[in-house]
Amino acid sequence: MLYIFCPHCGSRSQNEFAYGGDATVKRPELNKEISDQEWNNFVYLRKSPRGKHLELWHHISGCRQWIKVERDTSTHEIFKTYKADELTE
């Protein structure tokens, strides 16, 4: 079970969190004309890297804040966590 540092609450067990997927995906702006392909990429296409990955976690049984977690997908090492509005490196 992972031990995740929530920037709002401190280190907590994984069972307080829900996984939220790739944190690098950016939603296209509202009312913007975009191609099927671009939209498709946003809705469905995700990288699944082996190694460092920036992902979203929702502290669902804690502060209910979405946070960004930089984690190694093969070793589960967590390098850094960020608040939702914090700039990532």
Binding site: R27, L56, H58, W66, A84, D85
Partner: peptide
């Protein structure tokens, strides 16, 4: 609720 929080915190802060 999670869905709404997602958009408020991450997409349209």
């Amino acid at each position: 609720l999670s869905h709404l929080e997602y958009y408020l915190q991450l997409v349209w802060p």
